[in-house]
Write a protein that binds this DNA or RNA. Structure first.
Length: 210
DNA sequence: CGATGGATCAAC
DNA sequence: TTGATCCATCGT
């Protein structure tokens, strides 16, 4: 019975990326001695021939050895290495065979604060421990080895617990050079852990003709 | 703002 | 094979 409930939980993410992002915002991420409230996310879609074409998504050019998790069932962890240094974590959404994911951009530590502090270094202020997708993975102990992990499996070292949806602020995604104005970044307004918005310097200038 | 770092992918 | 790009972060 419990497994059915957990299955239902994963099914809650078998929806379009924006709807999945709304369900993950305010959820709790548990793993490796820490737990944290997700306060900022970004939705990403798939290839041009899919239901949500998204040139900014890793899945845009089709499945490959790196991004195959995005094409799999909902509720799996998709990790990738950014700029050769940082690990970033997504949660796959949509149905099996359809690409979609939600990037976890920032979280507020609820437990294991000292563990996260040790991972990040003493000079980092508490609100900044899991601010930014790379820092979030660092603080929670998520690595590239966690790629493909089932976040709804009670045996997983990293899990997610969905909660009631909360009102979300929304705006354009950070750092993307394509589809830069699509408002697929969601966050909890007023949270100090939310990262500052910075447009990609490579993105075309927004319409400034007026 | 620039430097950094390594994987990835589109070209040659 | 080379070169540009990338869902970033930390410094000045």
């Amino acid at each position: 019975m419990k497994a059915e409930l957990l299955g239902v939980s994963a099914e809650l993410l078998a929806v379009d990326p924006l709807a999945a992002a709304r369900r993950l915002l305010g959820a709790t991420l548990v793993g490796r001695g820490t737990s944290a409230l997700i306060v900022e996310v970004e939705a990403y879609g798939g290839p041009a021939d899919g239901p949500w074409p998204d040139p900014a998504a890793h899945s845009f050019r089709g499945p490959g050895p790196r991004n195959w998790v995005m094409f799999g069932p909902a509720g799996r962890l998709y990790t990738y290495r950014s700029h050769g240094i940082h690990v970033c974590a997504n949660v796959a959404c949509a149905t099996d065979g359809v690409a979609g994911a939600v990037l976890l951009r920032a979280a507020a530590l609820e437990s294991g604060l000292e563990v996260a502090q040790r991972r990040r270094g003493d000079s980092v202020r508490p609100a900044a421990l899991a601010r930014g997708p790379g820092n979030l993975c660092s603080a929670l102990g998520i690595t590239m080895d966690d790629n493909g992990l089932d976040l709804f499996d009670p045996n997983s070292e990293i899990q997610v617990q969905l909660a009631e949806e909360r009102p979300a602020a929304e705006g354009p995604r950070v750092g993307v050079s394509k589809a830069a104005d699509r408002p697929w970044r969601l966050w909890l307004a007023g949270r100090p852990e939310v990262s500052l918005y910075r447009r990609s310097p490579r993105a075309p200038a927004p319409d400034q003709s007026d």
